[in-house]
Design a protein around this nucleic acid. Structure first.
Lengths: 218, 218
DNA sequence: GACTGTTTGTGATAAAATGATCAAGAATAT
DNA sequence: ATATTCTTGATCATTTTATCACAAACAGTC
């Protein structure tokens, strides 16, 4: 029995990884403002986190700071981009050309943060062939070839909840590895597929727990 | 020194509260499918969580199940809706009438889960006066009166990052208590204001950490 | 009614995350 | 030069969170 047969993919706690994009986003903002050096304390104040947490998170990946001075903003940005593998542009496909799909396909903020929507799909004949910006909406049957052509690993799922599970299975079958799901359901997927969810109602319901009840009716 | 001077708002861990909306969403789905009874194990399998975690989470709020049988789906839905205070409809205002704002204002899935967008605002004169469904876009100056009129505590922020902080301050000034922020920045707000963030790029960058690097270009 | 199958709710335990502390390095002031 | 002030990265302590394991409760069956 070879205890190294499965390479240890990452001992980094997922919760640490989940904070890195937040750090990067704020560092890019500082960089754009012309800030050259920052500290864990300044970052912590901007993000509502403790300085110790930020230092500890970063220490999983190396030593990026200098005692007495802090962190060079541009350098730390670069390092985080490498760690997160966003020092390049990832192709993303989008399924669902409704209002939400349009909003996502038209959003110009993806590219400079490492992502580009390269194809859009829908199953509505009325939408197939129409264009969103420079992209032509294709039939969902064209997903597998597009995934292969662009070597795409990431998909956005912006279809109604009733169709989401089925489309997710098509995506996985086509070779997609990670799905960002806007449908308000929990997908059932194989363990090697990563799914992240965006459902605004989940956030609303989290908020209302802490609010004084104040409703319109019923 | 009166140890009860500040009423203990909630000893419930926030991480427990954050899972309740997920439970509710899945229970509603089961209910719609005609399922009358479920178990912590079934729920756990649907959600990718352990049955013990679900039982323990629920136990913070009462005893909702029956040994040997499990949980009555309709009853547990009802209880969770009460706990989360979504056994009614909350008014929500939306700032930002771009593509995203349109998608949100047109989305029909809010109402039956406890939320209704009652007003939309933008600062673009070209958009003010236009309508989205039954709602007329108003100038941001009208926010305070709308918040008062609807007794609104929740706002969606769907404006560009460059405007988000300033608009957030206007919302708080107007009496908004919780903000769902779609702008890719971290807002600076007083401690009694709750902000939740939705930035798809954060999820993408979380995904790419675990993917094999595969990019279009530098 | 006794027996078998489940499934809950919970105290005990283990694991994980966070926070506090501090030596050492670096910049600045004296 | 020397002292002072910062700030990092590591270690240790504390708190929080998740898991385990099981008695008690219930439904169904013989």
């Amino acid at each position: 029995m070879n205890h190294l047969s499965t390479p240890v993919l990452s001992q980094i706690p997922d919760i640490v990884v989940s904070r890195l994009p937040i750090y990067l986003r704020t560092l890019r903002l500082l960089k754009d403002q012309g800030v050259e050096v920052t500290s864990s304390q300044e970052l912590g104040e901007l993000l509502g986190l403790s300085s110790a947490q930020i230092r500890k998170d970063l220490s999983h990946f190396g030593e990026f700071g200098k005692q007495g001075t802090g962190y060079n903003v541009a350098y730390l940005c670069n390092q985080l981009e490498k760690i997160l593998k966003v020092d390049c542009v990832w192709p993303v496909i989008l399924v669902g050309a409704g209002y939400l799909g349009h909003a996502l396909a038209s959003y110009t903020g993806f590219e400079h943060r490492g992502f580009r929507i390269v194809a859009v799909f829908d199953n509505d004949p009325a939408k197939i062939g129409s264009t969103i910006g420079a992209i032509t909406v294709q039939a969902v049957e064209a997903i597998p070839s597009a995934v292969k052509q662009h070597r795409c690993q990431i998909a956005i799922l912006a279809v109604p909840a009733s169709a989401a599970q089925q489309v997710a299975e098509q995506l996985i079958e086509a070779g997609i590895k990670s799905i960002l799901c806007y449908a308000p359901i929990t997908l059932t997927v194989p363990p090697h597929i990563r799914v992240e969810y965006i459902d605004p109602v989940i956030y609303f319901q989290h908020m209302t727990f802490y609010l004084e009840k104040g409703c319109i009716e019923e």
